[in-house]
Amino acid sequence: MDPSGRLVIDFNGMNLESFQSRVMPAKNKLFRFALRFLGNEEEAKDVVQEVLIRVWKGREQMNEVQNWEAWCMRITKNLSLDRIKAMARKQTHPIEEGYSVHQGTLSPHESTELHESMNRISQFIAALPEKQRQVIHLRDIEGYSYNEICEILELDMNQVKVNLFRARNAVREKLTKINAYGL
């Protein structure tokens, strides 16, 4: 671990085993990020697979990469965008699967309500412009620092903050509307 608590990997001495035990666990983060773009699990899996193979092939150069995880996320973003372009597919629609809400204290009525509002939030976020969607995902779901988000999305700090601000407030506004008027 380096001072920022990030996992540091010696890529020069990397063998299959350390690849599997140290790089592979990032697959879920990469998958969620790719899924945010593609909205299709199979496509997202393909992208993650390609990213991991690239890491393995480029393992000798990886030591020069300061933050390998951000690097992987950036490749995931680029490959996902390429894929979207290649398939000329318009923005796919939110992951509509249900959320398992395990809260024993809630009554069936409350639990359905919660489930519904979470589905709504999923739709709100899916409806955001692409950059805002990426930023809010990286910050609020994956918990990346602003610097890391800059690195991943190749944006400057100001753009990242503006996009996050707009994304959060757009969602907030919609949430308030629902609660005020039940829309």
Binding site: F31, M118, I121, L175
Partner: peptide, 12 residues
């Protein structure tokens, strides 16, 4: 629900 949504998505 917003924060719950974030938590649930993290588990995906």
């Amino acid at each position: 629900p917003l924060f719950q949504y974030f938590e649930e998505n993290k588990k995906k």
